[in-house]
């Protein structure tokens, strides 16, 4: 049944996947097996997104499906969830003044699917919040998202705040957003810019030694 579940999730057959999860739980299956299957399916979904077989609609449905499965499974978990050691930790957020979340969410989903520990701070995130989170979780990477042109300056403010806090040497910083490019990355003082979520994963892996 586990294989069936992996295929149903990866193929985004929502009803079939949920019905399989219910049957497995009813039959007394270890919830960890269901979570492992979900993780495997998410990796396949990530691969399909990178291969441009899947796009945003598919990631949205996958995200909804993950949420529904987690709601069913989590109350039944007796022991702590075991996951593989992450490739790295990432603090992610849309910079202050900008409330756009779609691009950031896709990047978060893809990094998560590729075994990064993602700390998503949400939208309209002040520089001080980034700094505090970096101190707290000690990430390898900081991802700054911005859709509006106001993000050029807000990203710079954020990077400068990270510098002032003495944390710049501990993290690599990448930026993303429809209007960003390498000139923008240079202006804000980031280490890299990614055109899309697949690029973000590639950059993150190159920085953490992942393949």
């Amino acid at each position: 049944m586990k294989e069936q579940l992996i295929t149903a999730i990866a193929d985004l057959k929502e009803e079939e996947a949920m019905s399989l999860v219910r049957s497995m739980l009813d039959a007394g299956e270890d919830p960890q097996v269901i979570l492992d299957a979900t993780g495997e399916a998410v990796r396949t979904i990530g691969d399909r997104f990178e291969a441009q077989e899947y796009f945003l609609p598919e990631l949205i449905i996958a995200g909804d499906l993950m949420k529904q499965i987690a709601e069913l499974v989590k109350p039944k978990l007796a022991t702590k969830v075991t996951t593989a050691k992450p490739l790295g930790k990432i603090v992610l957020g849309t910079v202050a003044g900008d409330i756009h979340d779609i691009g950031k969410d896709v990047v978060g989903f893809m990094l998560d699917a590729n075994n990064f520990e993602v700390h998503d701070l949400g939208v309209d995130v002040p520089a001080a919040t980034f700094v505090a989170k970096i101190r707290e979780v000690q990430p390898n990477i900081v991802g700054l998202s911005g859709f509006l042109t106001l993000a050029f300056d807000q990203m710079k403010v954020t990077v400068d705040a990270i510098k002032e806090a003495g944390l710049r040497d501990q993290v690599k910083i990448m930026i993303g957003g429809a209007i960003m490019d390498t000139n923008a990355a240079q202006y804000v003082g980031a280490d890299a810019y990614g055109t899309n979520a697949a690029a973000a994963v590639k950059i993150a892996k190159s920085w953490t030694g992942g393949m």
Partner: peptide, 9 residues
């Protein structure tokens, strides 16, 4: 014309 160029070029 890229906005980043108008902004900081």
């Amino acid at each position: 014309v890229p906005n980043i160029m108008l902004h900081s070029g």
